[in-house]
Design a binder for these strands. Structure first.
Lengths: 335, 335
DNA sequence: CAGGGATACGTAAACGTTTACGTTAGCAGC
DNA sequence: GCTGCTAACGTAAACGTTTACGTATCCCTG
């Protein structure tokens, strides 16, 4: 068996309280005993038992992260940011791949409660009232990353999707495009779906460009749906000269289909993506895209969570992070 | 405060032992009391405290996963497999992004020990003797996924890299190629580097094709290094008609550079990748590649770990999983 | 009807910490 | 020399479980 605090105390000739004090460096011992205890700890290779610690201190030094798909390029980047920030302040993270499954999410919530996590971060998944209620019952701080909850207040960190989408299509307009299509995300996604087409619409109308319904098509943010989206757009509106894609993956799909159809990018068709995931620099040609600071979003999320935990607050100010456009080679200037 | 087992016991008019028995359904109570207890649990919304449970049962129902980079496409796929298998048997997973940093890895090992994890999986990272020693001291089951330890025995699950690489280049040969280059991984990587070039070499010599050093170049499995690799190969051996890339990402890099240089794939140059990560179907053209069952590797890894935990064994038989070649569009048949 | 063996519980110790509280010794101040 | 204060500890309760052990009841058997 591993040595316990009692073993250390006995061997050092002090009480367990004293050992605890030096381990947590809390005052109440002389330099001499401190050294003695430290030496014994070294000798025995003593490591405190986090379960026992957590039991009495009511702090497990662990947070839970709910995430729809760990292996998604964009989600995993945020997870990385969370993990990184967590590590630097000595917290561990339990990952929960919800698969966008409500039942599974509820199971995870239960597990996280039982494991006494100090807080929960949910990444890029829609929040239902049921979850919200559970959060309340659990009495545990929650922060949302790349998502938000409209019917109540849960602190979140994200970029302003509508503004970002506005900016992306305005960029296309500035480059001289007027026949601008959009391959949007899910039609009923209130986070990354609707706001982005809203931004697109507003940019067009602000610049006096008519909005045509047949210029917009919907996908599910995935590669295949990007291919299908371009296919539909080509059919419905061949006059389009540029497309705003609501995700890099869909843009990559569009790129693939364009290649298959012999459509040259950016010469005949310009494309701008969204996210700036790893994929963006790997496409042919490299994808111009609207960058979300994914990793940073994760870090900020964890930082906010810790602030809530330390201050014992049920909420905290949300954070809107800045986006940028990274220009690569898929949009061409129309003269 | 959340209700404890004592609250339940009191309200149900039984002892804590009985409540514990019904919660863990262990024999020793009548159907009647069982119902009464269950009802009270429901009423109070009682959830057992996993810390207290773990403290006495010596099982935290949590495993740790050490992984060099969570956001890597191939690693995250394996992580997903692990998480999935873990969830189905009620284990949680703590992720540790080591960044391939030795010091950081050691820190994580310490944390995992303190958190009393039931086991550890290390994914796709080289194992040093120091780690091996730590594992021994920690007295905790360990399994390796997509890596192995040559100087001692730690159970692992992976594909046979050398055989797979052999197969991939033999595939190229079967397609009529003879001038076959390789963009390899790191020169000093004993897991995914050296074996794959060994397989490549053996395939060539088995088929009576001379091995030329200038046909092999080394990268780091990343996109950029794939570009650079092809650039060097083009310079050193322009007569090459096919290339075996030790990762999909490097293949994608090669694809990009080829496009930039006006080299048509697969018409003038065939390419085969390794991994079959998400990327493979997103390239232009879609990448023919050697598929590793990444997700399954993670699942098997966790299953093996649990077997060790349950049987209290320090080791177990390793597993070699089958690969397959998935044919897409980057290899052309030479007549 | 004595004896034995289930069955259905309850009691209390144990897990490894933290921490409130008590105790002792030393010393300053008067 | 007494009071009071502080530093440096030690004692023991508490955290929420599991589980070994004890006990009372009931029933069966001969």
């Amino acid at each position: 068996m591993s040595p316990t605090i009692r073993d250390v105390a006995q061997k050092a000739g002090v009480s367990v309280a004293t050992v605890s004090r030096v381990v947590n460096d809390r005052p109440g011992y002389s330099a001499e005993t401190r050294n003695k205890v430290l030496r014994v700890i070294e000798e025995l290779g003593y490591q405190p038992n986090a379960l026992a610690r957590g039991l009495v201190s009511k702090r497990s030094r662990t947070v839970g992260v709910l995430i729809p798909n760990i292996s998604s390029m964009v989600a995993s980047e945020m997870l990385k940011g969370i993990e990184d920030a967590a590590h630097t302040i000595g917290q561990s993270v339990i990952v929960c791949n919800t698969d966008n499954n409500g039942e599974r999410t509820l199971e995870y919530l239960q597990v996280l409660k039982e494991k006494q996590v100090d807080g929960i971060i949910v990444v890029s998944a829609p929040i239902t009232p049921l979850y919200h209620q559970k959060f309340g019952e659990m009495q545990v701080p929650v922060v949302l990353v790349s998502t938000r909850y409209h019917d109540g207040n849960l602190p979140f960190v994200k970029v302003d999707d509508e503004k970002a989408a506005y900016h992306a299509t305005a960029y296309l307009i500035k480059k001289g495009h007027e026949e601008i299509g959009m391959i949007a995300g899910s039609k009923d996604d209130r986070i990354a779906g609707i706001p982005r087409v809203e931004g697109y619409r507003k940019a067009l109308s602000d610049h006096g460009i008519p909005i045509r319904d047949q210029y917009i098509t919907y996908g599910n943010f995935g590669f295949q749906s990007g291919m299908a989206g371009l296919e539909r757009l080509l059919e419905a509106a061949p006059e389009i000269t540029a497309i705003f894609c609501a995700s890099d993956e869909m843009a990559a799909g569009a790129l693939s289909l364009a290649h298959r159809r012999g459509i040259e990018i950016p010469d005949r068709l310009s494309l701008i993506g969204y996210d700036d995931s790893q994929l963006a620099e790997m496409t042919i040609p490299p994808l111009t895209t609207l960058r979300q600071p994914l990793c940073q979003m994760g870090q900020e999320g964890l930082t906010m969570l810790m602030a809530m935990i330390e201050e014992g607050k049920r909420t905290i100010h949300s954070k809107i992070l800045p986006y940028t456009i990274v220009e690569r080679e898929t949009v061409r200037e129309l003269r």
